[in-house]
Structures are given as structure tokens and as C-alpha cells.
Amino acid sequence: MNALAAATTTSTGEAFQFWILGTVAVIGALSTVLLKRAVHSALSLAGTMIVLAVFYLANGAYFLGIVQIVVYTGAIMMLFLFVVMLVGVTAADSLKETLKGQRWLALGCSLGFGILLIAGIGNASLSTFNGLGAANTAHGGNVEGLANLIFTKYVFAFEITGALLITATVGAMVLTHRERTERAKTQREMSEERVRGKHLPPLPAPGVYARHNAVDIPGLLPDGTPSELTVMQTLRQRGQIRDVSRQSLADLKALEQRSGERLGREDADAVARGADPASPAENSEAAK
């Protein structure tokens, strides 16, 4: 607190903290921009935000520091992650630029802008720092001080931000809302449907009898064809089923046929059977 009050320079501890954490913050920011996967970007950003929260605290903004962690890192970033998951966590961006000259222009602009800002700050006469000691203690603490300002001087802005939040909530609802075109099924109807439908037991799991057990790989039916039923509906609709298609099966078949020919097996039946390695039932029948 005394160090803050002194104010033209900071304590050695704070300087140490600044250089260490500042480097971390810059690295986090750069990784946010440069990492391919959105999840990684989000995590880097979260790190940067936590560093910033520490800096807030160091600057005497105790309330904001906590709010930064709770609201930003805790809520907003989680919202981001949520949407990233919704959109597809595995989807990696290609960092190849498609717009001609966009990258250089962007870098030039950002660099120029940053230099301008830094030059502006350097030119400004900011030699004295008053420190927040007096302000924070005037009403008994940082939170009380803020509350005093919010509910007196900034009360209208505060109320208006309330209205803004409501509006944003409504807006988000409207944007993501989909009109229901049919009546929602009751539980009874759903259970009856299930009993009458094809699948009374749970749907088959993905990857069964196949070489993979990932969620996005369809399980294979006894005749070797992949069954889309085994893949989760969301992935199916998103088109994120991994390729174990007839094409790759056909490739395998052709490979086995070629090797069979080389080994001199002329039994067409055997070749045909051999060409279908993914149907173990048939193979076992032939073995009998």
C-alpha cells in the first residue's frame, strides 16, 4: 500500500512480477493469435486474462481483479470453450492466408498502430503517479469506493448497462431460437415409439467389430458395411464421421486380390471370400 502511495516508481517486487508476468501475458496473447486450434487459443487467452487479473490487483484494483477472474476467466472464457465444443473441438484452422496481402497489411497496420500508441504514451508527461491509497481508503476500501461511485455518480450508466444485459440476453435467445414446428412428444409417446420401433435395446456402439473405437468411427455391420446408426446423431449431422467407407474397403479388397493372384490362388471363390476380410461370419462359414 505504501509502495502504491509512493507511486512514481514501484517496489522491486512489483517490477519483478511485472517483467515475469508481462512476458507470460505477451506470450499468451501471441499464442492466442498464432495457435491453430481454437481450444488452444482459448486456453492461452485465459492465461493472459489471469495475468491481467494479477496486474489489476497489483494496481490496487482489488475488486476488478477478482471480477476479472470470476467473470472473464470463469464465465466468458467458459462460454467460449462451450461454443468451441459446439462448433467442433477438433477443427483446426489452416493458417494459410487466402486473401492476397491481407497478412502483411494487417501486420503493418498493427505494428504501425502499436508504435503510434507507444510513441503517444512515451510522449505524454506521465511522470507522477498519485497512487490509489487515499482513494481506496476514503470509503473504507476499494469495493466500498467503487460502490460509492457506481451508485452515485455513475448510477445512470449502471442502470443502462442493466438494460443492455437484458437486451443481450433476449438477443441471444432470439438469435439461437428455432421455431418448433410440431408438438413436443410426451414421455409416454416416446416410450411407445421406442417399443414399436426397430431398436428396443440401445443403439449399437461405434467402432464395434472394427479397427477403431473412436466415437466418430462407425461400427461395421456383419457384412462389413459401416453403419451410421452407431455414430452419435450430432456428429452425423455435422458430417464429422471419419472415413471407413466402401471406398477404403474396396481398396483393401483389391489389395488382397492382387496378393492372392501373386500367390497363385486361382480359386475365384476363395479370392472373392478373401476379398472380404471384414466379414468374419462369412469367413468362418467358409472355414467350416
Binding site: 504501425g112 498502430f113 503510434l116
Partner: peptide
């Protein structure tokens, strides 16, 4: 993004 660049560049010019 192209529009964003021109906006950003314009801002930089104004600040300059």
C-alpha cells in the same frame, strides 16, 4: 477482414 484492415488502417491514420 479486408474491410477490417481498412478500418484499422484508417484509425491508425487518424491517430497519427
Amino acid at each position: 477482414r479486408t474491410y477490417a484492415v481498412s478500418m484499422f488502417g484508417g484509425t491508425a491514420v487518424v491517430i497519427a
